[in-house]
Amino acid sequence: MSSRTSLTLPILAGLWILIVAGLAILQPSAMALSTVTTVLQFSTLLALVSLGQAMVILGGGAGIDLSVGGTVSLVAIIAMLLDTAGVPSFLLPVVCLVAGTLLGLVNGILVTRLRLLPLIATLGTFYVYSGTALAITGGSAIGGAPAYLLPWGRGTLAGFPLPFVTLVLPLFVLAVLLLRYTAWGRWIYAFGFNERSARLVGIPVDRARFIAYGFSGLMAGLAALVSLAWLGSARPNIGQNLELTSLTAVMLGGVAIFGGRGGLVGVLAAVLLLVTLQTGLLQLNVNTIWQVGIIGALLILVLLVDNIRMIRRTA
């Protein structure tokens, strides 16, 4: 597992440097602090959601969370509905965290108690969460997010967006430490890699996996909070496509789809790479459809490179 992570990062870093260098040559004006701010600003939601997604996938058992985008949308809507219904607005962040965690734990129950396959369970909740968010609002946004949130959501510190500095970075550091130095973190890798042995040595696989889905929901809840503070309103489709982009980021970041292998640093690197690529192409005024195609091709190519390396090693 170490050999894999150690190669993922250089590849991602190399690609990133290439994109930045290309941009510097073709569009020198893009080499400005505002570009950094923009990249990080648009990385924030994806990074948070990808962190949760990565935990779920690392935990194995065909773990996957297709409901993350729906969770972000639904939490944002729930929070603003409660806010307009008179719940004190200083509680809004708490509402987001609790609602997100609960929605994530529903997935946890479906997977660990009802023993539904994660792909099926979260495909189901994807439909339910994203559909409910649209249906109860009739599609319209709910404005009027508490004013005290906006300076945080839109503010920057030396060019770095505050939500990125105060949420994404600490959470990734914390999660990396958690995975590396705590029993819980080692369990995740252990049962992600070999579940039967993990059960035999007495690791509470189901409970840890249940928590992983809750964690993914919590991250989605945080993403919803950031979206409220940033946009100033709750959008019923704010999480649209996040399930597929977060999956792309996690796979690109070197996490094996079957769990047990990969690291979170790679995931963050992949998120930054994806958003830098999008930004670069936008700065060059390349039609956005190329983003979709290039990112798809990149995903396939990186896994192909990885595979060929593995086959050579095993051969």
Binding site: L247, T248, F258, V292, I295, G296, L299, I300, N307
Partner: peptide
């Protein structure tokens, strides 16, 4: 390549 990842990538390529 694991089918779900490969076809996710192809989804993007085909859309383009």
């Amino acid at each position: 390549i694991p089918a779900i990842v490969a076809t996710l990538g192809l989804f993007g390529v085909y859309r383009a």
